[in-house]
Design a protein around this nucleic acid. Structure first.
Lengths: 222, 222
DNA sequence: CCCTTAATGTAACAGTTGGTACAATTTTGC
DNA sequence: GCAAAATTGTACCAACTGTTACATTAAGGG
């Protein structure tokens, strides 16, 4: 904080490279997520920036370089938000419920990130695969779940043999689809699901469904 | 069949407008789903066709006109495949299980359609919303579920008050995400989920989860 | 068999868009 | 203070891309 403040003070008059890059990245995420990789125009990104097109090429090389950095920025922001969540002190079932509900809400409040991931999937995740930065960020998400599973199994609350990655898949699928496919789904079946009450009911249903999933199977004959 | 054969025979030598349009649409779906709306190039579509760019504009007006028709074609093909499925004779729980498993497989075998819907969502479903053709196609999907629910409730196999649209939402979410987000998910967490065994296990889990969802709630004190 | 209309080939154009050459200015190391 | 390096402004270009004008051929009606 102090070093950043000093940095800001030292360069307060003109030329602030870090701020310029952040500015560009912020706008790039917005424009790419609005228009897609081919649809996004460098000129539009530049126009919505406080700097110029020249600077984009100076700092990021070319369009793909900028796109990759924007993708990384989108992931970084979302993962940072997730780290706010502390589940270590909660009992396993409550921790899982909290994690699912949080993921659902968190995806909803980060549509830019969702759209960046959609775009990346359209392009076969080639940029993501080329970015070591991102791959290193996604370990923590699974670690949280692995810990919950381990504790739940130890306490006999969860059935044994749970796969944290499979759980993550399910939680992601429902929370992601809720944001990614809202346009087509609501165009075909109405906006009802996306009202405040609709979303609340949906979230509860998803939490319940996941909790039922991890509970030990009924053993009728025992 | 006879009229089409006659039509084909009559125009066998040169000029076959229907075939030309079908050819263009087939390629258009492929190219749009590969590259996105802005990423797709009319020149590439033309090149992969047996006709010319000139004909694309002659029959479809402009790029957006072609895109809309391609989107409609993608929906039509998938919905036609769904209509092959007959569930009326099965008991409700089996019918639901069959429908879920079928949807899962059907999405998997139609990645072009999935990608078209992804692209449409990136563009806020504006084209889909403007196409009456598509909206009329999606009633049957819900009708199937509504019928299953009604029968299940009548027989006491399902709990009352089920929402067919909500069920459709869940089935779609899991089956869709499985295809749409495969690139990013497998880049981050490995290909394991998308092997033949992985997909089989996933499908069974999804079917079980949906069946558990509709069963009457345990009423411990009765 | 002719004339209108539908279908197709050729070639080109105008606007856009990613990218850059060149020069000026600011910052920093010494 | 000064020279080297980092940062920024201006103007421009070459390639691409959606779209169309013009001419030509095939099909159907009478």
């Amino acid at each position: 904080m102090t070093s950043e403040a000093a940095e800001g003070a030292r360069r307060r008059w003109k030329q602030n490279p870090e701020a310029v890059q952040e500015d560009i990245l912020r706008v790039a995420v917005a424009v790419f997520s609005e228009s897609g990789l081919s649809g996004a125009r460098i000129d539009e990104i530049a126009a919505r920036t406080q700097t110029s097109k020249r600077m984009i090429y100076y700092y990021f090389g070319d369009k793909m370089g900028l796109y990759m950095r924007a993708l990384e920025a989108a992931y970084a922001k979302v993962r940072a938000g997730e780290d706010q969540l502390d589940l270590g002190t909660l009992p396993p079932d409550e921790a899982l419920a909290r994690l699912v509900a949080f993921t659902f809400d968190h995806h909803r409040s980060n549509p830019d990130f969702i759209r960046m991931v959609m775009i990346e999937n359209i392009h076969n995740a080639e940029t993501l695969a080329a970015s070591e930065v991102i791959r290193n960020m996604n370990v923590s998400a699974i670690e949280k779940l692995r810990d919950i599973c381990r504790r739940g199994e130890a306490e006999g609350l969860f059935r044994p043999g749970l796969d944290p990655v499979a759980l993550h898949w399910q939680i992601s699928a429902l929370s992601f689809f809720n944001v990614s496919n809202r346009p087509t789904f609501s165009a075909l079946f109405g906006e009802g699901f996306f009202s405040e009450e609709g979303q609340k009911a949906l979230r509860r249903q998803i939490v319940d469904s996941l909790l039922a999933e991890v509970r030990p199977r009924d053993t009728p004959r025992s």
